[in-house]
Design a protein around this nucleic acid. Structure first.
Lengths: 350, 350
DNA sequence: CCATTTATGCTCAAGATGAGCATAAGGAGC
DNA sequence: GCTCCTTATGCTCATCTTGAGCATAAATGG
């Protein structure tokens, strides 16, 4: 077997958590200040180091499973006990983490998605709940098609496609842009969040490309030319996150949007009882689109996903609404109990 | 940060590949003889060491990404260049791998799913293509409900549920069995493959439980009592695989069944052109159910997933069939182009 | 009392789906 | 050539599902 060395190079398993809550119709993300020091990488960032996802290393001797390791350090760092946790993806690209810059070790990160209910400010210092659409603003279509798409992103993607080396790679780029962003008669697919972020990154619309290049330089890696940003820093769409954390966030959002369609995970984000509008608003917050009220109600009520409690919520701003709860029995009745299929389509009127 | 030690314990990243092909309506899996030696673990196996999934370690210095590492050693070991590759899941439970038994290192395995077309016998020694339903026979409903389910598995699951410590944990077990295996009016959900395997493992229906326990003993781990098999070895459902590879296979099958519904991955397994029946048989092989011919045809033709070539296939055994090809344009036309939604439902008549 | 807001129930057309039937066009056996 | 068998292909039809909108109910704030 080639490539193996007598002295094994060291590997560290990192565990990243995308901890999500929905409050006041806003999908929020628990962020921290980046803990691993990365001198020089963010030195010219006007706002200081960008927000990072919570991170902790696996204890290879102490943690019996990866998920238990994640739960352990989230508990240690925030005092919070996680409920619903699901593995997202494992990121192993070299030089993702500044720790690698020192030649210490290869860092492979296993990212998890956690859904929590309450939005307590959290015990950790520097921890903050932030609207996740501030990092991926083009994903929020609840107020209509984001102006960013036509004003900033579209033209930059066109320039990127036009800048391809030859004709065939140009048409490949064009097709990729069309499919990923639903252009030219195509449809916007809410789940292609990661593909869109990666395209935006490649097209020079993400500052992270600069930082990544700086890290590679600091480590003396082979370079394929410094990336050029397509726009001045202040005009780039969305706020950046530390390291490759925006990519992880995009993975989480795409996965979650898919999952609410066929598994009742949305209830992990809601209180025990809720009105149907609260439920709808939570789904809309994740899906990033507005839904038809009557049809949504029919979907969840006739679909057996919820049942009324008989109690009323009076602080609705209008007629009082019945409080509903999740109906567990649906798990054995229906094949893929979730909201959607294909119900998750944008709506014109409410 | 608690739990960290001055001298970092070693970690090895393993890369596992579930390499799948469909030939002659049989979904096949590339297996090898287990390479890591595990003395004592399979000593009383009548048939010798069980088949294993191909495995290779990540080269932390040489491999720029995990997927490139996977592609590298598959190329090195089998001479085969992989096409479609998708990350499946990362398995990090302690003592999964016999290498850990020696106290050498913690092994964390990133499993990948690869879809290939041809079924060449492969260059590696000991490599074999095996029908994957031999490992998970209860997942194949193409010839009707597997007799195994009522004859062997069902009663054993009932005994397992009845053996719970108290009433509430018993009813929890019962509910889990009902949902996972679609009992008591519930529906069989083809995608819950992993959940079913895990239940079968817990209920003492998988030999792997014995091996795992043996490994823990050899390492001097805390034991929670030797697992008792629910049946004599020869009566256990399905053939075992080495280590936790049957679990990885179950993960792959479940993921693939889900994916064919909304992404056109099925075409990765077919030749450039194919008849509609070949396409249907391939889908059935993965989904494990028979489909309605007319409706399937309507789904893929009207759904714009395929287009006729005008050429005919004559060796059909009946009237010649038109050869079709995948229609790439569907990627930009449709939201989730795949076979199903909800089309993938078993059928009574053909 | 009225405008506004949210809740809830209902209708209706269009489209998708499940199931089956009928006919077409090959080959094999005689 | 004829019959039977096999697979291909086209079509129907009842039933559900979905998208969109309307009407009424019940709260609040002026």
């Amino acid at each position: 077997m080639s490539g193996r060395r007598a002295r094994e190079p060291e590997v560290i398993i990192g565990l990243n958590a995308v901890i999500v809550a929905v409050t006041e119709e806003v999908p929020r993300l628990l962020t921290v200040e980046p803990t691993l020091d990365a001198p020089g990488v963010w030195e010219d960032e006007p706002a200081g180091p960008p927000p990072a996802l919570p991170f902790g290393p696996l204890d290879p001797e102490g943690d019996a499973t990866l998920q238990l390791g994640l739960r352990r350090w989230v508990r240690e760092q925030t005092g919070r006990e996680l409920g619903y946790v699901e593995q997202l993806y494992t990121f192993g690209t070299r030089n993702r983490e500044p720790a690698e810059r020192l030649g210490e070790a290869r860092v492979v990160s296993v990212a998890y998605l956690a859904l929590v209910r309450e939005e307590s400010p959290s015990g950790a210092s520097g921890a903050r709940w932030l609207d996740w659409y501030r990092f991926l603003p083009w994903e929020d279509w609840r107020e209509g098609r984001p102006a960013l798409l036509d004003g900033v992103i579209g033209p930059a993607l066109d320039r990127w496609a036009a800048g391809a080396a030859d004709v065939s790679s140009r048409s490949a780029r064009e097709e990729r842009v069309d499919i990923t962003f639903g252009r030219r008669g195509g449809l916007w697919d809410g789940e292609r969040v990661l593909e869109r972020y990666e395209l935006i990154y490649e097209a020079g619309l993400a500052v992270e490309a600069l930082w990544d290049h700086r890290l590679r330089r600091l480590r003396g890696e082979p370079e394929d030319g410094a990336p050029r940003l397509a726009l001045p820093r202040s005009a780039l769409p969305g706020q950046p996150m530390a390291f490759d954390h925006r990519r992880i966030l995009a993975t989480a959002l795409g996965r979650l949007r898919g999952k609410i369609r066929y598994r009742p995970v949305i209830f992990e984000l809601l209180p025990e009882t809720f009105t149907l509008l609260q439920l709808q608003r939570a789904v809309e917050a994740l899906a990033g689109v507005r839904l038809h009220k009557g049809n949504f109600r029919r979907l969840v009520e006739h679909g057996g996903l919820v049942e009324g409690t008989g109690r009323l919520e009076v602080r609705t701003g209008g007629r009082p609404a019945e409080l509903f709860r999740f109906r567990r029995e649906v798990l054995r009745e229906r094949q893929a109990p979730g909201v959607g299929l294909p119900g998750l389509r944008p709506v014109t009127a409410s």
